[in-house]
Design a protein around this nucleic acid. Structure first.
Length: 483
RNA sequence: GGCCCCUUCGUCUAGCGGUUCAGGACACUUGGUUCUCAUCCAAGAGAUCGCGGGUUCGAAUCCCGCAGGGGUCACCA
């Protein structure tokens, strides 16, 4: 039988890395077995719904390359894929349960319920709704909540990640199937839909673990065979204590796109957050993941989300690309990353990439790193950096000395054909002639031509800037020192 | 509070009874790559495997307690 998994977010805002990882694992499982991945929107809570969420979720998944075979935007054999469009189905299934004596109308008001709860609390015993089952419940007319009539028993089941699990009958209680507004609860709707949609593996995060026995009781009442369960541990926030949440500042996954992270990096990072293939491999391509991913290698404990590691992984992938690949990626993502170089010539931009690739960790840094190649150095920065240099080699070198060095550089480079080799040779000559250290000469040149205290290596930078611009900048710096 | 889950370097993890006084990666420190930042390469520091009992010739690995953390007990998902 072919594997079918689903990702079933509720449209209550954006997706963060936690949600994406759940989607990713389901997607991987489906793809590696030639199965299907279904996207279902669980929009049964009209109060919490946030407009535009569905589109946002779809965009996030698409960006990461997690494609689905059936979903609200593309249909499928089990449509519709929005729960709000399936209300008739839930009603029908609710009726089935009433008919078989496994559901009843809940006659209590919220105030009455509250009273039951308080009383239980005072008596220091757990509250169970089934202790208050009405003797002769009213006929269900849709205005009352429809409740599941549970048959408490101890359960034992297998979880693909957590292993063997068990609980006693005390956790199985009567819960609401359909709310008084006519919408089903998650507890009911997901079971009906998973069944109807032929979902074979229910992959979800840990907060549902303790509800599972209730679900099992409902599967049994409906005569449905249990699917396989895979419960994923939480992705923890930076403090390592609590699960990552929007409340505590978890970022929208599309923020990473904005900052110029690569989907390949996010996918690899998220997959290895709580999973590994047992080797020392750290970065995986999508295809490798599809091939190697195993649910039983998933960690049981929560993993902290470490943005440092993501940054490193993104840099790794950027460095692994050819210049043409890198160029295309940036063009496709957002030309705005170029900033000052937005309108420059493609070949020139590629040459710039050749120099900055090694220090580029995410695309949003590109403007800052590449600025010297597109804009004249800022005079104030040049002045500042030469007169009170943070550079340890330059510290204490008198202005007259710097001025003298700059003039020698100018006269030396005026004779150069500005090939990289020639520049190197001539500057090496100059080092010998002036009896200065590279630690002094090179920073002076760097500051003069870039206005920055750090930049790519000096010979390549000079070559790419070209003779005219380089000399002009050197002249300007020299004049600044003299003034 | 009841129930359930979890517990190896700061972080992500390898490890599934012996070849491990615990291996890799991120981060950190130091050195090298004519200069900076970065990359790359080396090296270094960093975990008495939550604690206490067992079982065993032998335990991070099996069993039992305890502690700590988390989750859940909604007409939210």
């Amino acid at each position: 039988m072919s594997i079918r998994t689903r990702f079933a977010p509720s449209p209550t805002g954006f997706l963060h890395v936690g949600g994406i990882r759940t989607a990713l694992f389901g997607w991987l499982l489906a793809r590696q077995n030639g199965g299907q991945f279904v996207l279902r929107i669980e929009d049964t809570d009209k109060v919490r719904e946030v407009e535009g969420s569905e589109q946002h979720i779809i965009e996030s998944l698409k960006w990461l390359g997690l494609d689905w075979d059936e979903g609200p935007d593309k249909g499928g054999d089990h449509h519709p894929y929005r729960q709000s469009e399936r209300l008739g189905i839930y009603k029908e299934w609710g009726q089935k349960l009433i008919d078989s004596g496994r559901a009843y109308a809940d006659p209590y008001t919220p105030a009455q319920l509250e009273e039951f709860r308080n009383k239980a609390k005072q008596e220091k015993r757990p509250f169970l709704f089934r202790d208050h089952r009405p003797e002769s419940p009213p006929a269900w007319d849709g205005s009352q909540p429809l409740r599941f009539k549970s048959e408490p028993k101890a359960y034992q089941w297998h979880d693909e990640v957590m292993g063997q699990l068990s609980t006693g009958p005390e956790v199985v209680d009567d819960f609401i199937l359909i709310k008084s507004d006519g919408y089903p609860t998650y507890n009911f709707a997901h079971i009906v839909d998973d069944q109807l949609m032929g979902i074979t593996h229910v992959i979800r995060s840990q907060e549902f673990l303790s509800s599972t026995p209730k679900f099992l009781n409902l599967y049994d009442a409906l005569g449905i065979e249990w699917p396989k369960f895979a419960t994923l541990p939480f992705v923890m926030g930076p403090d390592g204590k609590k699960k990552l949440s929007k409340r505590d500042g978890a970022k929208d996954i599309l923020d990473y796109r904005r900052e110029g992270y690569l989907p390949e990096a996010l996918v690899s990072f998220l997959a290895t957050l709580g999973w590994n293939d047992g080797t020392t491999q750290e970065v995986f391509t999508r295809d490798e993941l599809i091939q190697k991913f195993k649910l039983d290698h998933v960690q049981k404990s929560g993993a902290r989300f470490d943005e440092q590691r993501l940054l490193w992984m993104n840099g790794q992938i950027i460095r692994g690309m050819s210049i043409d690949e890198l160029y295309e990626k940036i063009e496709q993502s957002d030309k705005g990353y170029w900033g000052h170089g937005r309108d420059a010539d493609a070949d020139y931009k590629k040459a710039v990439l050749g120099l900055v690739q090694d220090r580029l960790k995410f695309f949003a840094e590109l403007d800052q790193l590449s600025e010297p190649f597109f804009a004249e150095p800022d005079e104030n920065s040049v002045k500042e950096l030469l007169i009170s240099p943070p550079d340890k080699h330059l510290k204490g070198v008198p202005a007259e000395e710097l001025s003298r060095i700059l003039e020698s550089v100018i006269s030396k480079l005026e004779q150069s054909d500005f090939s990289e080799d020639d520049i190197r040779n001539r500057l090496n000559e100059l080092l010998a002639e002036l009896d200065t250290k590279p630690g002094v000469l090179f920073p002076v040149i760097r500051i003069a031509i870039t206005g920055k205290s750090s930049s790519p290596e000096i010979f390549g930078t000079l070559r790419l800037l070209g003779k005219d611009k380089s000399l002009a900048s050197l002249h300007r710096a020299s004049a600044l020192l003299d003034s």
